[in-house]
Design a protein around this nucleic acid. Sequence first.
RNA 1: GGCGCAUUCGUCUAGUGGUCCAGGACGCAGCCCUCUCAAGGCUGAGAUCACGGGUUCGAAUCCCGUAUGCGCUACCA
Length: 486
Amino acid sequence: MINESPRVRFAPSPTGYLHVGGLRTALYNYLFARHSNGKFILRIEDTDRNRYVEGALENLLETIEWTGLIPDEGPKQGGDYGPYIQSERLNLYKENVDKLINAGKAYHCFCSPERLEELRQDQIKARLPQLKYDKHCLFLSKEEVLNKIQSGEKYVIRLNVESGPKVMIKDIIRGNVEFDRSTIDDQVLIKSDGFPTYHLANVVDDHLMKITHVIRGEEWLSSTPKHVLLYEYFGWEIPEFAHLPLLLNADRSKLSKRQGDVAVEDYKAKGYLKEALINFVALLGWSGGDDKEFYYLDELIDKFTLQRVQKSGAVFNIDKLNWINAEHIKNQKSEDILPFLKNTLLHSEFSRISYTDDYLLKVIEAMKSRIVFYSDFLERSSYFFASPNEYDQQIIEKRWKPETPGHLRILIEEFEKLNNPAHDDFETALKSAAEKLQIGAGKLIHPVRLAVSGIGVGPGVYELLEILGKEEVIRRINTAIEKIAV
RNA sequence: GGCGCAUUCGUCUAGUGGUCCAGGACGCAGCCCUCUCAAGGCUGAGAUCACGGGUUCGAAUCCCGUAUGCGCUACCA
């Protein structure tokens, strides 16, 4: 086993969207696999037919693809251990559970939901410490079982938990965890509709798919003894376990839809970069042990180990996500942002106007350090794409004085003299205008910014002017002089 | 109720017996830079390391207990 290269899996159930907790689980599996030269497998756990959602699988696959956490084996890419969708593996569960039945480690149970409920109520009333199935059907004779099956009675297959030593779980993150066998219920393995439960399916598949490390959420820790028992009964080698801490809401309950967005799709739609989402989610429960917090995927692969995973749950803090997103945008090459800006423009009110790459690249350079999302290019600097149609009233009050129009006319005269001016040319022109007027440059700078952009914040004014260009700048100043009445 | 896991600034975390009256990051406040807003730089507020006992010359770090939180307790995953 030590010499084998690891095989790990991400095993989501297609419920309609990819949960950010699921993304984190997928990420850690992926990182572990890549770090140790192993294989990352995607397996779809769709054994609950009541939870079937149309299109959920396709959506899940698409979202995983978007994150870039591409599996080595899975429904899309195939592999030697398929099929990778549990509903297509029903025969395998049947086959293997039969072995258990023959060995007396599992048995048919014909108890009705009503009897089960009654039993449960009785146990509650009797204040029994544990609520467990009473093994009623274990004592049916072979003939009785056969008869019931042949007469069409509904049944499930249960695990036969017998007394014995404590079940010990070795968990990479939590150390050893022990469970008394008497606390383990005779878990249903095959449901009455013929589908396996998670417990059976995941053990059978993990074995058949030669999974070496089971890396999953902490909510599975409590049912792990059932899985270990199953491995034991089957006589299969037990994989290593690593139970990840939960992702939490601000009130420290398990991260849920009620308290904000939990779907990766939601964050994607809001404009978060996959790089940022991955970076952020990686830090929820793991740290490299130093002060580094900005990571690209390949750096994470390099540094990631399960030993450094935190034990306690982590609150999903949107402020930090925003910071990381801004940080990633800042660090992107402008050329790499270009296609996204173009796409954003295409879906905006400016879709009918075309801008040169050169122009857009300048806009990106100017705005990159001032935005959190790509959409902020439009939200915070729409003036690069159209003349301002209104002017910030507060800035008018602060910066636009009665003498301002006169000053700006002088400034325009200076600008007129320029030929294809750049940053410094605008600066020289503005300063000489200020000198002629015997005023400080600020008396010109702020009104120009307002005239040209409609607002009081943004890139340096000369940068702004250079990007917009002489003609456009003069046009806008003239318009502002007309429109802004003090 | 039972079983299990966890517990360091508001949040994410560093820390594996002395270098920790606890370091970093986000957020917050202030200063610098500056034509504005960001970015960047600097500074600050913010944690009796859940609590109580031990062990030890010495504990955030080891042990025990308590509390609190969370998870599981389904023919859901």
